[in-house]
Amino acid sequence: MDNSRREFLAVSGVLTGLLVAGGPLALLAPSRAWSIELRTLSSSEGATLQSMTRTIAPHDRLDNAAYALVVKAIDESLQADQHLADVIQSGLGKLGSNFATSPEEVRVNMLKNIEATEFFQTVRAKTLATLYASPLAYAFFGYEGEAFSKGGYLGRGFNDLKWLPEVPLEDSGPVPN
């Protein structure tokens, strides 16, 4: 293996965690322990970034693993983009290594102060684009996703709402058999 290849595979940091026992993610995963290798960010930068993504999109019962996937996606996008790597690493440096252990109120205020920066906006956009697109998020939010492969929702709950009156036929249409 030549040096550039070895360099490409070099691990710069690691994020690890343990899935909450009995949670929806633990049921999907082969093992409760997870570990994600970073290629550009250090472990400490990864931890700060993970905390930042949770502050932007807080879901208390959503496992850290879902947020680690966002960190992984951001870390991957830095490999081929030096400008972005500079933006993210300098932004994380300014937040400091105490960010992740600060109370939420403090974290929110710190982020509010940098809301207009490219650093914040990039992380916000990437968090929103990644966090809710994973199978882990689908399971957590109860989203059933595509249904074509199952014959649609026609016989599977598209009209099962019972807490409001039904719509008269003249304003809707017959349900196909």
Partner: peptide, 21 residues
Amino acid sequence: VTRRHGLPGLPASNHFKVMYN
């Protein structure tokens, strides 16, 4: 096109029931 030229409308989904009511 539904609800034109003798064609029926689409059935009401949960989502439409909320809007309708």
